[in-house]
């Protein structure tokens, strides 16, 4: 087999793998599908047929059909539902926090101590987080691995908040704490991205064990 044929096989298999990842095919099944396809394309290349000629230009469509026919199960990440359930609650809570800050600063003589501010923030953040987690649990508890997901979110969301807050404040400082709409939008995007990242990470973490189980009909083969 020459280099061109090997390159064609690599390209085709990589393209198929990308499609299977998009479809959230379990990693173990993806590895098996990929190995089988590579073996078959290599056998064909040995007979002088390039992978690109064999599969044709629509590799994604081919990979989709292959996954469907193989009956592989998808990892039920359900990111969209999870994010749409968790983030509005967090956004509402964040707005609540923001509203709360403006109150105690007036009149200036009643300026609270730093410890009191931190304690207030912490309690409110905990309430916000708890509300969001309870909402996620009640609305999405039918999804697989949700107890683990909620636990992972409980761990990762405060971490994400703790990391994103100084970054957002630092950004706000560079623009003199402007209240201009584009600045506020960027600040919201920074916080939102961090929290969304934490939610996605929590879900992946919770489904890690679930995703590693291969479909029985794919794992059985003769050597």
């Amino acid at each position: 087999m020459n280099e061109s044929q090997q390159w064609s096989i690599d390209q085709t298999v990589r393209s198929a793998e990308r499609q299977w990842r998009r479809q959230h095919v379990r990693p173990a099944d993806l590895a098996r599908l990929s190995r089988d396809l590579r073996d078959d394309l290599t056998a064909a290349a040995d007979e002088g047929v390039a992978a690109a000629d064999l599969v044709g230009p629509d590799v994604r469509g081919f990979a989709r059909r292959l996954a469907d026919e193989a009956g592989v199960e998808r990892v039920p990440y359900a990111y969209d539902r999870l994010l749409l359930t968790a983030l509005p609650g967090l956004a509402f809570a964040y707005a609540l926090l923001y509203g709360y800050i403006a109150g105690p600063t007036a009149p200036p003589s009643d300026e609270p101590s730093l410890a009191a501010v931190i304690a207030t923030y912490a309690v409110l953040a905990a309430l916000v987080l708890a509300t969001s987690l309870v909402t996620v649990w009640f609305r999405l508890r039918h999804l697989p691995a949700m107890p683990h997901t909620v636990l992972a979110m409980a761990l990762l969301l405060p971490l994400a908040g703790a990391l994103a807050t100084p970054v957002t404040v630092a950004f706000a400082a560079t623009v003199n704490y402007s209240n201009a709409l584009p600045v506020l939008a960027i600040e919201c995007a920074l916080m939102g991205a961090a929290l969304a990242g934490a939610i996605v990470l929590a879900r992946r973490w919770a489904l890690r064990g679930w995703a590693s189980i291969p479909a029985p009909h794919l794992s059985a083969t003769q050597a």
Partner: peptide, 21 residues
Amino acid sequence: YGTVYPLLTRMRRLGLVEDET
């Protein structure tokens, strides 16, 4: 191949064919 290979995969899932390396 784009038609036959996925169909072959289905037949393996249904237990009508088996593969041997």
